[in-house]
Amino acid sequence: MKFSDDKLKQVDEMISHYPEGKQKSALLPLLHFVQKENGGWLSSEAMDYTAELLKIAPIEVYEVATFYSMYNLQPVGKTVFEVCQTGPCMLRGSDGIVDYIYEKLGIKPGQTTADGLFTLKTVECLGACGYAPMMQLGPDFREHLTKEKIDALIAEGKTKAN
């Protein structure tokens, strides 16, 4: 993995948010950036490159990447459904959403479809309790979910892949 000059400029911009010598503070934003550039997950190579960019030890990257739930340490499908299942979403029927996705795609939480298109994850509270049930889809939230909306999201995921 090696960034172009343009990407390296973006890395420098991130590091410029902190005082001299505190570039390690850019680790979380940089890992988001690296993950996006690496097809949605953090390989060992990607993490080592991150360490190199910030001039820190690789272990400092590994321990952070394994702590936060938004970093994927395994490859994921092209579309990742992250369905919230904490109390307030449960009260509004999030279990039914997870069941319906299983019915349509045959995947349980943590699984990816054989064609690599969809991954289903269950996640804990995402701060959309008033708009439940909901899921995270890439950088966006999809709220007030219904079976019809799930059908549409699946169709959208398939179109995107073609």
Binding site: H32, M70, Y71
Partner: peptide, 19 residues
């Protein structure tokens, strides 16, 4: 990057330091 604990102020500071 997804951690409720970072709402605790000292954990937040650790996280802001890249830990």
């Amino acid at each position: 990057a997804g951690a409720y604990i970072c709402g605790e102020e000292t954990a937040l500071i650790e996280s802001l330091e890249g830990k």
